[in-house]
C-alpha cells in the first residue's frame, strides 16, 4: 500500500478554517468537499463540506433520514453496495480523493475500520472473527495472529470476558459483547480511522456505557467518527459534532458549543427536543 499519510502538509490544514471551527495543530484525516449523493432521484446528501481531524471523536447527529448513516457509509464507500447510488464532489482521505479511479477501495477499507448498527460478527469462533482482517490481508503467522487477537480484544475491553473461550462461536456472546467483539475485529487491522454507525442502538444501557467508555479510550490511538441518534451520547463522548438535517450539514462545531450555544435555530430546536 502506498503511504497515504505522508508528511504533514500545513497548507491543506488551513482548509478547515472554512467551516468556522477552531483551527488546530491536529491533522485532517478526512476532508469532504461539495459532496452530493443521490439514491436514484432522491437527493440524499447535499453539498457536504466537513473536515475531520485525527485523534478526535466526531459525532454526527440528526433526525432519522437526515443522511447521517449514508454519509458515514460514503466515507468508506460502503454506500456503493447499493446499485442506484450516484455521487459527485470529493472526499479526501489523507489528502487523496477516495473516488479517484486509481484509489483501491479495499485499501481505503483496510485503513478505515467500521462498526455497524447491529452487531455483525461472523458465524465463526471469537478468535477467527478477530483474526479475519489480518488473515485476508495476508498475515498467516500463528504467533503474530495470536498476539493481534489478544491485543485487539484487550483494546476492545472484552479480553477478560472471552479469553477462556476464544474457540467458541461468536453468536454465544451477548449483544453488547458481540458489538465489542466487532470493535475488536475492526481494531485487529490497526486502522487509522474507525467509523461507527449507531454502534449502541441495538444495545442495552449497560452495554452502551461500556462501548462509550471504550470509544473514549480508543480516541488516543484512532480517529473516530460516530453516527448517533442519541444526543446525550454525542455530548458525552465527542469532541466535535456535526448536525445533519435533510441531507445538509446545518452546523459543525465543538461539541460543547453545539450543545450550549448553537448558532443555528434548527440545531437548537433539535437538541432541545422540539423535533426529531
Amino acid at each position: 500500500m502506498t503511504v497515504l499519510t505522508g508528511k504533514a502538509n500545513a497548507k491543506t490544514n488551513n482548509l478547515s478554517a472554512s467551516t468556522g471551527s477552531e483551527t488546530e495543530n491536529k491533522k485532517i484525516v478526512y476532508n469532504t468537499k461539495d459532496l452530493n449523493l443521490w439514491y436514484g432521484e432522491d437527493h440524499a446528501l447535499k453539498n457536504i463540506n466537513l473536515p475531520i481531524h485525527e485523534n478526535e471523536v466526531t459525532a454526527i447527529i440528526g433526525p432519522s433520514g437526515c443522511g447521517k448513516s449514508t454519509y458515514i457509509k460514503t466515507l468508506n464507500r460502503m454506500v456503493e453496495m447499493i446499485p442506484i447510488v450516484r455521487i459527485s464532489g470529493e472526499i479526501l482521505y489523507r489528502e487523496r480523493n477516495i473516488f479517484d479511479k486509481n484509489f483501491q477501495v479495499e485499501d481505503l477499507r483496510t485503513r478505515v475500520g467500521m462498526v455497524f448498527q447491529k452487531p455483525n460478527p461472523f458465524p465463526k469462533s471469537i478468535y477467527e472473527n478477530v483474526a479475519y482482517g489480518p488473515k485476508i490481508h495476508g498475515i498467516r503467522d500463528k504467533k503474530i495472529l495470536d498476539e493481534i487477537v489478544e491485543k485487539s480484544l484487550k483494546g476492545a475491553a472484552i479480553w477478560n470476558e472471552v479469553k477462556d473461550r476464544l474457540n467458541e462461536n461468536a453468536y454465544g456472546l451477548s449483544g453488547g459483547q458481540q458489538q465489542r467483539l466487532c470493535i475488536a475485529r475492526a481494531l485487529a487491522i490497526e486502522p487509522d480511522v474507525i467509523l461507527m454507525d449507531e454502534p449502541t442502538s441495538a444495545l442495552d444501557p449497560i452495554s452502551t456505557l461500556k462501548v462509550e467508555e471504550l470509544v473514549q479510550e480508543l480516541k488516543k490511538d484512532f480517529s473516530i467518527i460516530i453516527v448517533t441518534h442519541n444526543m446525550q451520547q454525542a455530548a458525552r463522548i465527542s469532541d466535535k459534532t456535526a448536525f445533519f438535517l435533510s441531507g445538509e450539514v446545518i452546523e459543525f462545531a465543538e461539541t460543547d458549543k453545539i450543545f450550549s450555544t448553537p448558532s443555528d435555530k434548527r440545531t437548537e430546536d433539535y437538541i432541545t427536543g422540539r423535533f426529531g
Partner: peptide, 22 residues
C-alpha cells in the same frame, strides 16, 4: 445476511475473499 458481507467488505476484503471466507 447482508450484514455479514458488509462486515467483510468493511475490513477491506475483496469480493472473492468475502465470497470465499464469509
Amino acid at each position: 445476511p447482508q450484514f455479514l458481507r458488509e462486515a467483510s467488505f468493511g475490513m477491506g476484503a475483496t469480493k472473492w475473499q468475502t465470497v470465499k471466507n464469509v
